[in-house]
Amino acid sequence: MSEYQEMEPTSRKRTPLKFIVGGLVIVAGIIFLIASSLKSTAQYFLTVDEALAKSQVGELEGRNIRVSGAVLGDSIEYDIDNLELSFTIAQVPADNQLLAEEGGLAQALHNAVTDQNRSHLKVIYHGPIPDLLKDEAQAILTGEMLPSGEFLADEILLKCPTKYEGAVPEQIDLEQE
């Protein structure tokens, strides 16, 4: 390949065809990379209700999914010798509008934990107990449904929405200015 030496002076305005083709090949490669990665790694993001419904009809077999719910504080059990953590999460709606109707995420989490009629899902996880795991935390779990109807998590993401902002401090002194 030594064609560059005899290359004709090209027109000033147009980019040669081979660069356009080369560029398209690179772009196509990247698009293919994104599409194929997406296909093999995309996960359903489900609520507890949806996860239970889908797993009953066998739709989730062997699939990696994400589930979100509210942590029931009393259900947290930790087997220290095997580092096996288990806890139960309760159904929280994922829709922003439904959340707003319940009075915001913090309130919705509280309702989910106190309401006996919500559906529950037992979660099992092997590893250190996460720092933020506590009652009424929002848990976002990645993993798969087991045939037993439990959820085997390999990643736990937790959020405690009320913690840092907006809550009026508990001890308040009243002073006249």
Binding site: L33, S37, L38, S40, T41, A42, F45, L46
Partner: peptide, 26 residues
């Protein structure tokens, strides 16, 4: 993608670290 997939199919689908790793490595 999660937002679009929810709009189109009504089902939220997400991508996690494996997706980004597979794209980022090459």
């Amino acid at each position: 993608f999660p937002i679009l997939s929810e709009l189109v199919t009504g089902q939220k689908v997400t991508v996690g670290p494996p997706f980004y790793e597979r794209v980022a490595a090459p």
